[in-house]
């Protein structure tokens, strides 16, 4: 899931010059890399700038019925993955978390743990 975001970023890097320019100056002391990999010694690796999946892929509608989309932002434990790990921008994270909570209420997503 995280790889998907990165792949789309690199492919669309051509028509988004503003993102491309910002990438080399990614913060040196920022939190660890992606969700997978990275690790505590993240400083050694090249850290790609995380981008909001919804902005890059121009997904406007975040609906509680779209479980396949929402599941990408829910951890194994059922937790909503924080922005700092997924790179989702604040307006989208707000709507995302609302949709996830609605999906939880109608038993489409679990409150805790894997779907039974």
């Amino acid at each position: 899931m995280a790889d998907e975001t990165r792949a789309s970023e690199s492919s669309s890097g051509g028509d988004r010059p503003d993102r491309g320019e910002r990438r080399p100056s990614s913060r040196p002391g920022g939190p660890g890399g992606g969700r997978e990999g990275g690790g505590p010694g993240g400083r050694k690796y090249f850290r790609r700038k995380k981008v909001c999946k919804f902005c890059v892929e121009k997904i406007e509608a975040i609906n509680y019925k779209d479980i396949r989309l929402l599941a990408q932002f829910v951890a194994e434990s059922g937790r909503i993955v924080p922005r700092r790990l997924t790179g989702v921008c604040t307006p989208h994270q707000r709507r995302l978390s609302l949709a996830i909570k609605q999906a939880r209420n109608i038993a489409l997503l679990p409150f805790a743990g894997r779907a039974a």
Binding site: R104, A107, L108, L109, P110, F111, A115, A116
Partner: peptide, 14 residues
């Protein structure tokens, strides 16, 4: 019919 993410009134499907 779908599998529920958690049990509701002792049902696993709905």
């Amino acid at each position: 019919k779908r599998r529920l993410a958690y049990t509701v009134r002792k049902f696993h499907d709905g």
